[in-house]
Amino acid sequence: MLSSIPKPIVIAGLLTLIAAGVFALRPGGPGQTETDAAKAAVARRDFDGAVATLETLLARHDTAEARLLAAQAARRGGRDDAAERHLAAYVQLGGDRDTAELERAIRRSQNGDLTGAGGVTKFAADNPALPHATAMLEALARGFMAARRPREAVATLDALLAREASPADRAEWLFWRGEMFMGMARGTEAAADLRAAIRLRDDHAGARLALVKMLSRDEPLEALPHLEWLDAHGHRGPAVRLELARCHRHLGDTAAAAAVIADLVAARPADPDVLTEAGAIELARGRPAAAEGHLTTALAAAPDRYETTALMARCLQELGRGPEAKQMLDTLRKIEADMDRKTNAPKEKP
């Protein structure tokens, strides 16, 4: 029978069998490919991909180790239900109960339950080599961010960034710290972190968008390539378009700015951010009458906005309507005084 099969086909079949044997007998066994792929996905912070890969493996070969990995990946990806499901299965398969409880504590911390924050920080500092410590610190940082406690978030991210980590993790932590700095009005440090995040992960759209929100006004020449990258990669939402219009205005290209903002105004005719920028662009084009319409609508939607009020004062001044401009300047002073009062008010303890 074998002799009736042409020799080349027999040889090919044998070779295939040998190859399959080599592949199956490599260290780690048949499940190792998925596990490694999942770990690689985690290193890339592709948590959904990691969970999917592990679930493929679990359907064929359910192990406690894979369940724990899946629980951790699901938790880091923000899928708490899946995380708990995998963790419960992990325990059923004989997984260590303390490890499961630790993972649950990390999840609570990630979701803003910061009761054990001090202990976590100390544990991480005392055990710099433990991988768990990194997971705990990352969850704690996210917890502080969720709880709007930027100072503690920055301190935790400082500790995280001092540890060994994948480039993707480092990029993400830099992005988070950059966002925290932005919220703390520490723009220089924010920009430095966001730039560093993009250097580590060129495709980090979130970092690019956060950066252009700062740079389209401050460093428009630097902002423009980021905006072009976002556009080329399909990020064409209103936030990106608004920054693009602002960037063009700050580059002195008011015609391009006007073209971008016209579409945005048509799409979002009551958005005070869009209307304020539209007013600023018309003022830059020397068209205060056109600016007034946009600014009036913006102020109707958001009456106490400093920038819009300031632009309206300029607009009225340029239109030669001095008394109205003065009135608007008086409003601006009131807003300033209010901001000063809030800034200088005694702070309550968090």
Partner: peptide
């Protein structure tokens, strides 16, 4: 009129 943007000055950063 504050004209730094329209006059290209803001390109400096």
């Amino acid at each position: 009129r504050h004209d730094s943007q329209a006059a290209g000055v803001a390109r400096l950063g």
